[in-house]
């Protein structure tokens, strides 16, 4: 029971950190909002209209997007690391994000055949992203059954990512200018570009995925022992694998469809969570991944607002700067990586 109270303490600490980062992120931006202004905006109706409008139209949706994307990507990463039994797995490194990108590119660039009204359809974009992600995920999974070497699998992911990138390039060069413009706008998408309308689609989809992941906790724990032991414990591997893939793709692809690729969060956060809670139990790790993922992406977003330049820095670059060193640490620390 001491373990439970220790976990409760850790969770409260993480929750405080999360709230702190959330408030900081809301305050930071091209116009700095002081904590006092934020407080009065929340508590009184007489607040400055300008600040209210900044908060409502820009800061809040951006912060919420960071929370959902961070939590979602971290959980997707955790699912993939367990499914592939590979500490280096994650939606970005294994090419799932690229697959989602390719799906959207095919839709926007390749589909001169589609009626015009379908092109801008956000649901179609999500579907394309999910299908693209699923295709890459299944391909990587098939290859992963042929090689048990964790580093090879990583290379496979990078190759699929490269193929997807190359195909997108080909599509870009043969498509008409109008479609190209539409795609470029999408591909530059950042968490700041997500509107309330988009959030109202993205949030439920990701939340469904997160709940699904939590429901799979017990089976994911059994998977930690390897496929054969899991079957021995009564896990139906076919169904479990299918569900994990589906949920991972739903989460990762939905997020990618709205924010563009965000690197390394999915891969790095599960390691931080396991390090803090000193366990691999998904019933502990998945909720902590959500808190930590949201916190880390909020932190990344805070860094993009640092007053080095007049423009916000790309979040993908910041998340790489923070996430990649964590992965390097994992590689160096993990002596059994070649098993």
């Amino acid at each position: 029971m001491t373990n439970n109270s220790k976990n409760a303490l850790l969770y409260s600490g993480l929750a405080l950190l999360f709230i702190g980062l959330l408030l900081t992120d809301i305050c930071l931006g091209s116009i700095l909002i002081s904590p006092a202004e934020l407080f009065s905006a929340i508590t009184s109706n007489q607040a400055d209209n300008g600040i209210m409008s900044i908060l409502y139209n820009f800061r809040l949706p951006k912060a919420l997007t960071a929370c959902i994307a961070g939590a979602g990507l971290a959980v997707a990463g955790s699912l993939m690391q367990t499914l592939f039994a590979n500490p280096l797995a994650g939606p970005y490194v294994l090419g799932i994000s690229s697959g989602a990108g390719l799906g959207v590119a095919l839709l926007l660039l390749g589909s001169t055949l589609l009626p015009a009204f379908l092109i801008g359809n956000i649901w179609l974009q999500i579907a394309a992203a999910v299908i693209g992600a699923l295709v890459v995920m299944v391909l990587v999974l098939v290859v992963s059954t042929r090689t048990s070497d964790t580093v090879s699998l990583l290379l496979v992911g990078i190759m699929f990512g490269s193929i997807a990138g190359a195909l997108i390039n080909v599509l870009q060069s043969i498509s008409n200018p109008e479609a190209l413009k539409m795609y470029v706008v999408w591909s530059m998408g950042s968490i700041g570009a997500v509107t309330w309308d988009m959030l109202s689609i993205m949030t439920p989809l990701v939340v469904v995925g997160l709940i699904g992941a939590l429901l799979l906790s017990k089976k994911l724990n059994a998977l930690l022992l390897g496929e054969n032991y899991a079957i021995g414990l009564g896990v139906s591997m076919g169904w479990t694998r299918a569900w994990v893939i589906l949920i991972t793709c739903l989460i990762a692809a939905t997020i990618t469809a709205f924010t563009g690729p965000v690197a390394f969060i999915g891969m790095a956060v599960p390691h931080i969570a396991r390090g803090i809670f000193k366990t691999s139990d998904h019933r502990t790790i998945l909720p902590s991944c959500m808190l930590l993922g949201a916190s880390l992406l909020l932190l990344c977003d805070c860094f993009t607002q640092l007053p080095i330049s007049d423009y916000a820095l790309p979040i993908n670059a910041i998340s790489s700067l923070i996430g990649a060193p964590i992965i390097l640490w994992v590689i160096i620390k993990n002596k059994h990586l070649h098993q």
Binding site: G226, G232, V235, S280, D281
Partner: peptide, 25 residues
């Protein structure tokens, strides 16, 4: 119940947590 030759490659499971897995079914 089975005991196999498969190696278990997990960083942070305690003896107790692993044995608790036996209660899965």
């Amino acid at each position: 119940a089975v005991v196999l030759t498969d190696s278990i490659n997990t960083q942070s499971l305690t003896v107790r947590q692993l044995v608790e897995m036996g209660r899965f079914p």
